[in-house]
Amino acid sequence: MSVDANKMLVSEFHQVVMVERRLDEVAQFMRDPLLDRDSKGVPEPLDRVKRSFAMYFSAFPDLQSKVEDITAEADKVVCRLTLTGTHQGEFMGAAPTGKSFSASAIHIFRIVDGKITERWEWVDRMGIRNQLGIQN
């Protein structure tokens, strides 16, 4: 896979999964299990990955994910995002506050044979919690 093909894969993944929320199509883009480096590097079944997306979609039904830039080299693609949304469902144990947030997120994906096999993820959880007024 070329660097351009890898970038295309990540762009499509973002559009289909993050924007259109077609969670049943996650497996077209990600290997099952995904090596999720933020879950202590253990292989994460895609069902759990999907549940995590679904949690965000249900906590923030109007969630918008905007791609700020995509940077790629060799087998890695970095996708930097701005997330905005209104807190209308339970989030990290906190009841809906009705407040809105805007926060940054960034993902590094490693792509092997046309699928995302490994992910490093960072979301400004602290910023989200502060803006929603969640104390603990």
């Binding site: 660097v3 830039d69 940077t71 080299e73 890695k76 693609v77 970095v78 960034i106 590094i108 490093w120």
Partner: peptide
Amino acid sequence: EDMVAEGDIVVVR
């Protein structure tokens, strides 16, 4: 731990 660079951007983990 890792660097990914393209164009005018360098991303560092």
